[in-house]
Design a protein around this nucleic acid. Structure first.
Length: 395
RNA sequence: GGGUCGGUGGCAGAGCGGUCAAUUGCAUCAGACUGUAAAUCUGACGACUUCGGUCUACGGCGGUUCAAAUCCGUCCCGGCCCA
């Protein structure tokens, strides 16, 4: 494998660590990245593609799977692993993010109360009431290896008092989630080694005091219930209104979370954001970037050296400035300049795309909008992420 | 040869006297995307420009009109119908 990271480029605090965790579907070493298989698949990819891309654990989504095909069917299939025929660890996101992405962004899509959330299905408009308890029950029904508490992630630009309110709600919901978790373990007679790991989520937007309050509240709640969290997630968006990475908030939040807990930076992120978070002590990541941007024709490339990128010259001024800090480059394969480029997408990459096809061919696939193009691009980007994380595991 | 319907920007196809450099779709060019309502979304798309405008454009030519892609004449080209 070609080294991705320049060895001396990161002047951040060195708080990274390596943990080993056990799940019923196998062990994991941190740090690791999980692609989002929201509806029970990484769009366009087969399990074989995932394997070739070096994908291990993945994230599925409670709310989306609840809507379709429904929990009952997945139970009949023998659980989400059997349904997908995927044997590696799976983490289910609670549906909390959909409180943000569907409702906070679009109030007519549902209603949030202390009791729970009324979602209006984007599929057919039907109403569904999801409570913290229900989210946990669904996640047990899915049979995942890791589950996440149902939370309320407000947009970062909300007034502080509203974010504080979301923090208190998230803490209260976490307690209800943990109680339900306890109940389900007993009800289903789940033994220690079969126990899914449980993550709570820290809210608080850009406010460090609220993040602190949230971590403390979540620790207190666990004590009250008499169980321990396996990990803490960083909730809401980790970029501010201008698209800037909220480095200090991420760093401080990591510091508030006691060392022994896993730290899961939900939704992070770009390769550089992952590296930064890793250095701060975050262990786990998931993001749609490699797959979505791949489907949209953006490919991640290993840099030939530590010099400035010359490829991405058409990006805006802000990007051009930022690119100095990047250890990789990106191309938009749809661009005209690749029409007759018969070289591989990334000559330093050994993924299925780069080993078999040219830039010109991929450009053609995107021009005719054939799904094969999106599939190959997603495989390539996931391999890039897999290689990056493999490298981080060695640092 | 007669009749009839048509010829609009790369293509398809609106417009049928001024608000038209011309709706819309496709194509093209670029950009965005961070716990996936995303095979999506945004912008540009005649030429020049001191960004206020200026010019050239709706088959050709010639008219009518203050004003024509839009009305009239004629020519060229195409579809269909009749001989």
């Amino acid at each position: 494998m070609v080294t991705l990271l320049p060895s001396n480029k990161f002047d951040l605090m060195e708080k990274h660590r390596h943990k080993r965790i056990k799940t019923k579907s196998g062990g994991l070493k941190t740090p690791f990245f999980m692609p989002d298989a929201t509806r029970g698949l990484v769009k366009f990819l087969s399990n074989d593609d995932l394997k070739k891309a070096g994908v291990g654990p993945m994230v599925v989504n409670t709310y989306h799977l609840f809507l379709q095909p429904g929990v009952k069917l997945i139970r009949q299939a023998g659980g989400i692993h059997d349904f997908m025929n995927y044997r590696k660890p799976l983490l289910s996101d609670s549906g909390g993010y959909q409180v943000f992405s569907l409702i906070h962004k679009n109030p007519q899509m549902g209603k949030i109360t202390d009791q729970g959330v009324m979602f209006r299905s984007p599929l057919d408009g039907q109403k569904h009431f999801i409570t913290p308890e229900k989210s946990i029950q669904i996640q047990f029904d899915l049979g995942v290896d890791m589950l996440v508490c149902f939370d309320d992630p407000p947009p970062n630009n909300y007034k502080k008092e509203k974010i504080a309110q979301a923090v208190e709600r998230t803490i209260a919901w976490a307690q209800r989630c943990l109680m339900e978790y306890k109940k389900q373990l007993i009800k289903r007679k789940i033994k220690g080694s079969e126990r899914p790991l449980i993550f709570c989520v820290v809210q608080g937007g850009e406010h460090i005091d609220l993040r602190k309050r949230c971590v403390e509240g979540l620790l207190a709640v666990a004590e009250k219930v008499g169980l321990k969290w396996d990990g803490f997630g960083f909730g809401a968006r980790h970029i501010d209104g201008e698209g800037n990475f909220m480095g200090e908030v991420l760093q401080k939040t990591a510091d508030f979370i006691p060392e022994k807990y896993l730290r899961f930076a939900l939704g992070v992120g770009t390769p550089e954001d992952i590296v930064k978070c890793y250095k701060m002590g975050w262990d786990m990541f998931d993001c749609v970037i490699p797959t979505r941007e791949g489907r949209h024709g953006k490919l991640f490339l290993r840099k030939s050296n530590n010099q400035l990128s010359i490829i991405n010259t058409q990006s805006n001024a802000k990007d051009r400035k930022n690119i100095k800090n990047k250890f990789y480059e990106t191309i938009s394969i749809k661009n005209n300049k690749f029409k007759k480029d018969f070289g591989p997408v990334d000559e330093r990459c050994d993924c299925y795309l780069c080993k078999n096809y040219s830039r010109a061919y991929l450009n053609h696939l995107f021009r005719i909008r054939d799904p094969l193009g999106m599939r190959l691009a997603a495989v390539h980007n996931l391999k890039f992420y897999a290689d990056l994380l493999e490298e981080l595991r060695k640092i």
